[in-house]
Design a protein around this nucleic acid. Sequence first.
DNA 1: TTGAAAGCGCTAACAC
DNA 2: GTGTTAGCGCTTTCAA
Lengths: 330, 330
Amino acid sequence: MKRVTIYDVAKEAGVSLATVSRVINGLEIVREETRQKVEVAIDKLGYKPNAIAQGLALQKSTSIALLVPEASFGYTGQIINGLIDVAKIYKYNIVLHTMSEGILEIKDIVDEIIKSRVDGVIIYNDKLMEKELAVLSKYHFPIVIIGNRMSDDNIASVFVDIEKAVYDLTMEKIKENPNYKVAVIQDRINDFTTQEMKAGVQKAYKELGIEDEGYIEIPSEYRRSYDYFTDTIKETPYNFLIANRDSQAIAALNAAKEQGLSVPDDLEILCLIDSKYNNMVRPRLSSFAIPSYDLGAVSMRVLTKMLANETIDDREIELSYLFTPRASTK
Amino acid sequence: MKRVTIYDVAKEAGVSLATVSRVINGLEIVREETRQKVEVAIDKLGYKPNAIAQGLALQKSTSIALLVPEASFGYTGQIINGLIDVAKIYKYNIVLHTMSEGILEIKDIVDEIIKSRVDGVIIYNDKLMEKELAVLSKYHFPIVIIGNRMSDDNIASVFVDIEKAVYDLTMEKIKENPNYKVAVIQDRINDFTTQEMKAGVQKAYKELGIEDEGYIEIPSEYRRSYDYFTDTIKETPYNFLIANRDSQAIAALNAAKEQGLSVPDDLEILCLIDSKYNNMVRPRLSSFAIPSYDLGAVSMRVLTKMLANETIDDREIELSYLFTPRASTK
DNA sequence: TTGAAAGCGCTAACAC
DNA sequence: GTGTTAGCGCTTTCAA
C-alpha cells in the first residue's frame, strides 16, 4: 500500500503538482473547473498531504512542545486539556515531554526539544526558580512559561500570583486577630510553589514585625506528610494550615481528626489546588480554585500569537484565582 | 540568526555533507581524523540535525501518537509516564491527542493522526466497544490498544482482564455465602470498563442460576453518583459494591457513612483503580491495583518492536492486577 | 490561470 | 574513506 503523493494526484487530475498544491492550500487563483478535477482526484486516491514534507518546505512543523514535570498529571491534566482545546483550533500538534527528577538540566531538555523542530514550547513549571529559568532567554525561540512571572523578547508567561493569594489570606486572618497563627506547609515536590507560598505568609508577618514565622518544613526523615502530622499536629502552634496540593491538606486533615482535633474549630486547613477530591473528604476542603484549564488555554493562545508574529500587549499574563470556602475553614 | 545546516558544517570542516551525515549518524566508516574535524565544526557552529528533514529523507518521523480520552488524566497520567519513559529510551517523541466526547468518530481522529505522519499510534480506550474499534484493522498502520483485547496484523493490545477480576472476586464472595449480594456500579464515563465489570459479576451469578443480578445503573437524573447513593444507599439490597474509579467508591463511601451505614460491616466497597486517594479516605479503600504505569510502558515497548519489524510472540498482552485489601472490605 | 523548476535539509546509493 | 548525486513530498517564485 504505497502512500499517495501530490504527484499521483497531479497525474490523476491531469494537472501539475503546483496546481494540486494550490488546491489543497485553498489558494484562490485556481479556476473552479480545475479545482473540481483535482478534488475528485484527491478523493478517489484518498490523498492526504504529508505534514513532514510540508514542514520542510515551509520551515515549520505546526507542532509545539509541552514540557511538564513528571508524574504530576493530577493537576497538570487540566492544564493539558486547556492547551489541547486551543491547539486544536489552530491546528497545532502537541509533543509531550517530561522533566524527570534531576536527570537533566532544563537547558539540555530544551536543546533536545528545539532539535526536534517544533515551532515553540510551553513549559509548566512548579519547581524551578527564576534563576534556573533564566537560561531560557538565550534561546531565539518562542517560549511560554506557566507558573512563573517572566518575559523577554521571545518569552511570555501565564501564572497565578500565589504569593499574593497567600499574603492576602494571611493578612485577613491576622488582622482579625493578631495572635492568629497561619502556616504554609512545605511541598517537597513543588519547590517553586512552596517558596511563593512561604514568601506570602512571611511578607504578611513581617508587616507585623514578626520574622521567619509561618512555615512548616517536613523533616526529611518523614516519607509522608501524614506521618509527620500524626506525630506533631496535636501540639502544633498553628491555627491555620495552607497546603499546596489537595493530598497534603487531606493528610493534615486526617491526622488532625485522628489525633482528636476538630477541623475547622481547633484547626483550619486549606489547599491551593481545587480538585474533585476536595469535595470528597469530610469536612470538605476549602481551596483557592486555581484556573488550571485556563492556564493551559491562555498559554496556548499566547503562543499562537507569538508564532503568528501578532503583537502581544502583555507578555506577563496574570490569571486570578477564586477563593472557594468549604467546611475546612471558618 | 540563521539556522545552521549540514552544508554549513560541511563547509566549515572542509568535507562533503555526506561525511557530516555519516558522523552524526555514527557510521563507522569515517576516519578518526575526519570525524574529529567534523565534530569540531559541529560544536563550533552549534549544529543540530533537522529532525523534519531527516524524517522526510528516511520516510519516518520517530514520533508516535498517543490518543487518550479527554479530562481523565488522573489515571491516564500513570500510563503516560510509563509510555514516556520507554519512548525516551527508543528516542521517540509522543504527540498527544485527546478524544473529545462524541465529537468525532474514532475513524476520523485516526485519519487525522495518520495524516500527521507519525510512525504509529497508541490508543488508550476505556469507552469504546470492540465493534467500534474494529474499523482500526483497516489501517495499514501500527496500532497498540490499551484496555481492550484485540489483535491483527498491525494491531497489538495490552490490557488487564477486568471481567475476570470482577468475576473472581464475586465468586469468592458468593461461594462463602450464596445469599451475598455483589453489585457493580455503572461508570458513565467509561462504558467499556463498565461492561467488562458487569459481565464479570453476571457471569458469576449466572453460574448460580441467577440472571441479571449485580448491576447498579445510576439514573440519568442524578448528575453525581454521590446524590444517587445518598438517596438510595440505606435501602440498597447489596452487601458489596464494586466501582471503577476511586471517586465513585468514595462517593458511595461518604453516602453510606452519612446515612448511618458502617463500612465494611454493613456494606463493603471497593474500586478497581488504585490511587493515592485510596489511602486518604476513611476507611481506607480496598482496590485492585491496576498496573497503569506498566500498561503504558509495555505498550510503548510493543510498538517499538512493531516499528522495528521485530517478531512479536504475543500481540495480546495481558497484565495482571494485584488485589489490595484495605479497610473498606472484610 | 497554470506549469517548470528550484529549494527546504537530510539520507543513501553509487562512484571514485 | 570520501564525494557526487538523486531523491523524500511539498511550497513558491518565475515564466508562459
